[in-house]
């Protein structure tokens, strides 16, 4: 059909939309699904950088956390409109991302990873020690947000459909971007940055632009998180959170968009299941990751191909 509206995408969306209708499904699972899809969408946004442009951001947790705080700060002050929260998050995350991406892309190689990490740690430390925003407790006990006046986003079903709408929007955005003129240049930058310059492309501008897109999508994910959880805490932007995003992208398969969604969902569910039995869940996840890196370096999606499935990978 088109670049975005494929039968597969529509069927997947329809199947996900039918999840709340599964008879006897505990409501808790809708909230787990919320977390899983949100995590998957963030991993997909990060894939624009990691898989397509060849940039590894160790600071995505800051975009996520800033988006969450933006919503929480508004809601704490009685602004319950979903749209106001999303708009405010876009402004805050966008302004921060502009600064970070400018400095992080000014130099090449390892500096991008280092600078995104350092900026994110500064943001984390700021919120961790600023009592106006609750310090280490963050902002707790938020009321329900409203889709519009009189329509609160209160039930697990409504929250689930909110994340589903976000995922669909984020996926469509990413698909359009990677299949565009712009997306081709990103891949060229990943493959050979110097050569891209000699073909007339201002590499830093492209890198900044893709950082901004990825940061805004991640910030929007952050913006809807407090609507499900009723809190925003500094823990959302610890650097290990950024590490988990990176792991999800790798589990799913770099440069595939769909792979990182699956990776994020897999990671979230695995963490939830394992951590309900043992405290050292990260050891289990570490083993899984090692197995994946060793035996399926192209991630879960790549593994499908090894098993003889038709190629699903969406090349730019």
């Amino acid at each position: 059909m088109s670049r975005v509206l494929t039968w597969r995408a529509l069927l997947t969306l329809a199947a996900l939309a039918a999840l709340p209708a599964v008879p006897g499904l505990p409501r808790y699972y809708l909230l787990l699904a919320f977390d899983a899809l949100l995590f998957g969408a963030i991993a997909m946004s990060l894939d624009l950088l990691m898989g397509y442009t060849g940039l590894v951001s160790f600071g995505h947790a800051a975009f996520y956390g800033l988006g969450a705080y933006a919503t929480a700060i508004l809601m704490e002050r009685g602004v319950l409109s979903l749209w106001a929260c999303l708009g405010f998050s876009v402004l805050v995350v966008g302004a921060y991302a502009l600064v970070v991406s400018y400095f992080a892309t000014a130099r090449r190689g390892i500096y991008f990873a280092l600078l995104t990490l350092i900026f994110a740690e500064v943001v984390y430390t700021f919120f961790r020690y600023t009592q106006t925003f609750g310090g280490s407790d963050g902002i707790q006990g938020l009321p329900d947000a409203e889709l519009w006046r009189g329509v609160p986003i209160d039930t697990p079903e409504r929250k689930y459909y909110l994340v589903l709408a976000y995922l669909a929007l984020a996926y469509a955005t990413c698909r359009v971007v990677v299949t565009s003129h712009f997306g081709r240049v990103l891949v060229a930058i990943r493959e050979n940055e110097d050569r891209a310059r000699f073909l007339g492309y201002s590499v830093q501008r492209y890198k900044m632009a893709v950082c901004l897109i990825s940061a805004l999508l991640t910030g929007l994910a952050g913006a809807i998180y407090p609507i499900r959880s009723a809190f925003a805490t500094p823990d959302l932007m610890v650097w290990t959170e950024s590490g988990e995003f990176i792991i999800s992208v790798m589990i799913g398969g770099l440069g595939t968009l769909v792979g990182p969604i699956i990776g994020g969902v897999f990671f979230t569910i695995l963490r939830d299941k394992v951590s309900s039995y043992v405290d050292w869940y990260f050891i289990v996840i570490g083993v899984v990751l090692i197995v994946i890196v060793l035996f399926m370096p192209k991630g879960l999606l790549g593994f499908r191909r090894l098993l003889g499935f038709k190629q699903w990978r969406a090349t730019a």
């Binding site: 359009v176 971007v177 565009s180 003129h181 712009f182 007339g200 492309y201 501008r205």
Partner: peptide, 13 residues
């Protein structure tokens, strides 16, 4: 191409 380096390059091909 005309779109190169412009905003429209984000969606056009």
């Amino acid at each position: 191409s005309a779109d190169s380096g412009r905003l429209a390059s984000l969606w056009r091909r």
